[in-house]
Amino acid sequence: MLGKLIKHDLKSLGRLFILLHVCFVAICLAGRVFFMNQLDFNAPDMSLLTPLIIISSLAILLVVAINFCTGLMITFRFYRNLFGREGYLSWTLPVSGIQHLWAKIISGSIFLIVDTLVIAAGTLILVTGRNVVEAYNSVSAEFTQVLGMPLPMFALYMLLFSIAGCFSTLIMIYFCICVGQLFPGHRVLCALAVYFIVSFVIQIIVFLIMTVCGFFDFAAQPAGTVSVDMFRLMAPSAVLMAVLTVIQYITVHYIMKRKINLI
């Protein structure tokens, strides 16, 4: 039954998801051909600055938009399928609440991981033109020194961190929706409120961790590389996220098993 639930989840969002991501890749290809390939990195610095700022801003905007859309699709699917009108069918299928939960976790993870990989591929399409690679090669030694490792290695680490983060993002979304369902009314609004409160609390805890780890004590720190600083911050943050994800999962598991109330 779990396999069937996953199949229907994937089918339900698949078409829109594929369309969005094909558009993203097409825009990246167009950006590469019509913009990046036209850049002359031997030109004076000032004439390069404006186009680079424009393409970087557009690329960031596009990445945030596609990532946001994917998250929104998964959120709507979870809410509508389990707690909206469709819930009247979903919860009367001969499957348990936990199977529903795992179907949503697995299908949501697939969408988020593919989304991350497509974004990485799109970024690669944008920055792997011959002119960009040649320009990078001329400064790669300095870049490696600042980063503390070669850029591709650094990018790979970032990609792996992002993929690992998909799971906690997903559980956080499901947690907020499920806790919102415990309220007698205005359940979507309550889910949003839970999201903002939890995010705020996480930010405060991360800030405290950074302070305790001496991240802001610039005078006491030796001048490190970007990667060293990043990993110093990411290690405690990853532990925190893992702990939070486990707590959130246990809560969602309990609600899906014992506290379902479709009103």
Partner: peptide
Amino acid sequence: NGLLTPTGGQIMINGLAPCPDTKKIVSYLP
């Protein structure tokens, strides 16, 4: 149909509390 959790008492369908097995034998039109 197991769409609500009781506050108290018991509900049994074919001798079982609402669960996947009872959902196999109950056909529901909301």
